[in-house]
């Protein structure tokens, strides 16, 4: 576990950079972390992030299929929003743990 300063605030992250306490997360942090991936967050990105946080906090296991069926974006669109890691990168930006799912 480590501390990291994101958007001017100190948060707890694990050694891969995922939040260990999702309640420390803010939208500004997501935007700043996205820059590391070369992603400029749009409303669509935030809708996916909100969906992931909501589902995670409801205790659900997250999969890209579930995001694809959310009505927000299809799976192809999800790959375009978060290139190279549709679920991994979006979860990191959403301030939730790395998804432990294989799908």
């Amino acid at each position: 576990m480590a501390e990291k300063v994101i958007a001017g605030k100190t948060v707890q992250v694990n050694d891969e950079g995922y939040f260990t306490d999702p309640s420390q997360w803010t939208k500004e942090m997501a935007a700043e972390m996205a820059k590391e991936y070369g992603i400029e967050l749009t409303d669509k990105h935030y809708q996916v992030i909100d969906f992931l946080r909501e589902r995670y906090l409801a205790g659900e296991a997250l999969t890209i299929r579930r995001v694809g069926n959310s009505g927000i974006v299809d799976i192809k669109g999800l790959y375009q929003l978060f290139p190279g890691g549709p679920l991994k990168i979006s979860s990191k930006l959403a301030g939730i743990p790395k998804p432990a799912s294989c799908v």
Binding site: A61, T63, I64, R65, R66, G68, D74, I75, K76, L78, Y79, P86, S101, V103
Partner: peptide, 18 residues
């Protein structure tokens, strides 16, 4: 139940990701 899709949908997920 584990959110593993039928074959055709699974193939679509793979091609959607390139």
């Amino acid at each position: 139940k584990l959110d593993i899709p039928p074959v055709d949908e699974f193939l679509e997920m793979i091609t959607a990701g390139g």
